[in-house]
Amino acid sequence: MMGLCWTAQAHEGTPHDTLAAGSDQLALEVDEAEAIGSAEVLQKIHANNLAEIDMGQMIMDRGNSEDLRKYGRILVRDHLIMDGMVNIVAKGLGVELDGASVNDDVAGFKESLIEMNEMLAATTSDEEFRAMLRAMAIESHQAALDLLRRAEKGAPDLSLRLLAKTSDPVISRHLQLAKEI
């Protein structure tokens, strides 16, 4: 099982406990690229882009150093661009990104992303914010890369495979930057 989940070293009685406990809700189970449909992949990428944009805004607002604020700007810029591409591909494939067509798995995924951003916003110290951000960003970007690479190899639609291929280097860069936080 591949998982998109944010975990951090658990410290009893802290938001880290909730991160670890919530990771099951955020898990993306993708055993084969073919096992996940184009609509679900696009909806999850869209939800992740929106969450990363929100996170980037939060980092720009709360970041106590220029490196954090720069990372926030990069997240906002890149995920806005990628979400524009997702919308184009979705429109071409007739996929609705939000609304009634979103299945329970995608809805739960979106809910978990919102909860994770709320937990990050609730941190009380700069050190806690930075540590939680780093853990969340590394795991989320690694899982996004796993999903993109599976879609690139096995998605039924050429446009989705191309989207995955062009998004890979951007998300790889985000992952590297997250490791440097």
Rank of each mutant, 00 (worst) to 15 (best):
A144G: 06
S125T: 13
L93E: 11
M119K: 06
A143Y: 07
E115C: 10
L80I: 04
R77I: 04
N103S: 13
R69K: 15
E118R: 03
V76T: 10
I138G: 00
A131F: 07
M119R: 10
R149I: 02
G94H: 05
Y71S: 14
L93Y: 06
A135H: 08
L145C: 05
L93T: 00
L113W: 01
F129S: 03
M119I: 07
I74Q: 09
R130S: 10
G92Q: 07
I114E: 15
M132G: 02
E111V: 00
V106Y: 08
A135E: 08
G108I: 01
L75N: 01
A107T: 04
M116F: 14
L145K: 07
L148I: 01
D105F: 12
V95I: 07
A90D: 02
I88Y: 12
A131W: 05
D98I: 09
V76N: 03
R130C: 08
L145D: 03
E127P: 09
D78Q: 14
D146E: 11
H141Y: 02
L75K: 06
G99A: 06
N87F: 00
L113V: 00
G99Q: 08
Q142P: 00
V106G: 12
G72N: 05
K70C: 04
I114N: 15
M85N: 08
V106T: 15
E127G: 12
A122P: 04
V95A: 06
V106D: 10
